[in-house]
């Protein structure tokens, strides 16, 4: 794994130099907090089991960050690097493919955590948002959900013929899911029909798992989510590894 540290640090710097990607990962979720916080506040509500709107959006927006990175960031960057010949240049060095993938995953996870910290910081400062779970448990769930979303992203990049197509596929999958999964608007306010569709969306399971663990539920209460997301991870990563192209 020689070069792993340097590549991860470099990826991280390059990520921060992309204004659009950085905006959607770091700034967009806190802006949603400002917007929806101003509209709904954070008073405890029966609808959300006694939690306020801002309490439950913390885990939801974390899922939103994971979706943004996994379904937009990963496919756009990866297929772009392939199309431009960046991957070809890396392949001409002794660096192993696994090093490249691990560095990319680490970068995206660190960006997710950074986004979460800013999000929770804003939520805490403005609305004293509640957290009743275990930090380690939520951390593991974020990493697990992240790997699932990223594996879908790599699969898109592997199957799409070019960078433009990868971007379009990512958007077509992500944007409906962003609104229908509870990642941006709580499912509790959605009509019954939407909620039934939501069950079939991977991101919905991320939202449910993270919210449960956030408020102290155990993994045992979320076996459905673990199985669904674990299945997507295994199949997604397997297919991505099978179809990944360096050029």
């Amino acid at each position: 794994m020689r070069g792993l540290k340097q590549l991860t640090v470099m990826n991280f710097k390059l990520y921060l130099r992309e204004p659009i990607a950085t905006f959607f990962t770091l700034a967009f979720p806190p802006l949603l907090v400002l917007l929806f916080g101003a509209m709904y506040g954070n008073d405890p509500s029966q609808l959300y089991g006694g939690y306020g709107t801002m309490d439950i959006t913390m885990s939801a927006y974390t899922a939103l960050i994971l979706g943004t990175i996994g379904l937009l960031g990963v496919p756009i960057t990866t297929s772009g690097y392939r199309e431009q010949g960046v991957l070809r240049r890396f392949r001409a060095t002794p660096m192993r493919p696994l090093t490249y993938i691990v560095a990319d995953l680490l970068t995206n996870l660190v960006m997710t955590l950074l986004g979460m910290i800013i999000l929770i910081g804003v939520g805490w400062a403005l609305y004293k948002v509640r957290f009743e779970g275990q930090v380690l448990s939520v951390f593991v769930a974020v990493v697990f959900s992240g790997l699932t979303m990223f594996s879908i992203g790599y699969l898109i990049a592997s199957l799409a013929p070019g960078a433009r197509t990868a971007q379009v596929i990512g958007m077509v999958i992500f944007y409906p899911m962003m609104f229908l999964s509870g990642a941006s608007i709580p499912l509790e306010v959605m009509p019954e029909g939407v909620r039934r569709i939501a069950d079939f969306l991977p991101l919905t399971h991320v939202v449910t798992l993270l919210r449960g663990l956030w408020f102290g539920e155990g993994w045992g209460e979320h076996l459905t989510e673990v199985v669904v997301l674990g299945g997507i991870l295994v199949v997604g990563a397997g297919l991505a590894a099978r179809f990944f192209r360096w050029e």
């Binding site: 070069g3 540290k5 470099m10 710097k13 130099r17 690097y81 960046v86 240049r89 060095t93 660096m95």
Partner: peptide, 27 residues
Amino acid sequence: GIQLQDSSLPTRIRVGEAMSLFGSFYA
């Protein structure tokens, strides 16, 4: 050492950074 006919680097990487990054891949 390889110079490829068609290849590229990330658009926002700096010259010095590219040198130390690629250097780190070699013994």
